[in-house]
């Protein structure tokens, strides 16, 4: 498995999730554990560029893939999140940013959404597409503003 560009040789039991492999075995703690059941999005990472919930992924299933966590991200979204105050406590932030990167790629590739379209990326589109990332501090406005700023 490649994690943030480095080859990580991991020998883990099949019941170890990708999230726990990253956090507890590799010390890559950027992806967060908020629910451990795919209900909050804090653990979002990119697997070969596709956003997934690493808590529901068994590490063995991602053998050979390229995993990108927030530590491996260098993206204008990061500064935009700060500028637009798209965060408060910071615990959901890694997942929000990784999810947003994956989401923008999906939109660029023509992925539709329940908000209705695959055309222009409106604020409503961003809200629907980002709904898998919960933020209890309620920084949603700032997150949407940051994404819109970068998408423009």
């Amino acid at each position: 498995m490649k994690v943030n560009g480095d080859v990580a040789a991991l020998d883990v039991e099949p019941w170890v999730s990708l999230l726990d492999a990253l956090r507890e075995r590799l010390g890559v703690t950027g992806p967060k554990k908020g629910c451990d059941q795919g209900a909050c999005g804090a653990c979002t990472v990119l697997a070969d560029g596709v956003r997934i919930n690493s808590c529901l992924a068994l590490a063995v299933q991602y053998d050979g893939q390229e995993i990108t966590t927030i530590e491996g991200v260098d993206h204008p979204l990061q500064e935009a999140f700060v500028r637009n105050d798209g965060l408060q406590c910071g615990y959901c932030t890694s997942g929000q940013i990784c999810s947003a990167i994956g989401m923008l790629a999906e939109h660029a590739a023509g992925m539709p959404s329940a908000a209705g379209g695959s055309g222009a990326l409106t604020e409503d589109e961003v809200r629907e597409r980002m709904s898998g990332n919960l933020c209890r501090c309620g920084a949603y406005n700032g997150i949407v503003d940051a994404i819109m700023e970068v998408a423009r």
């Binding site: 950027g30 999140f81 700060v82 500028r83 910071g90």
Partner: peptide, 11 residues
């Protein structure tokens, strides 16, 4: 801007 913004957006 919040001082801890960069730490929280880089992991």
């Amino acid at each position: 801007d919040r001082i801890d913004g960069p730490a929280k957006t880089t992991g």
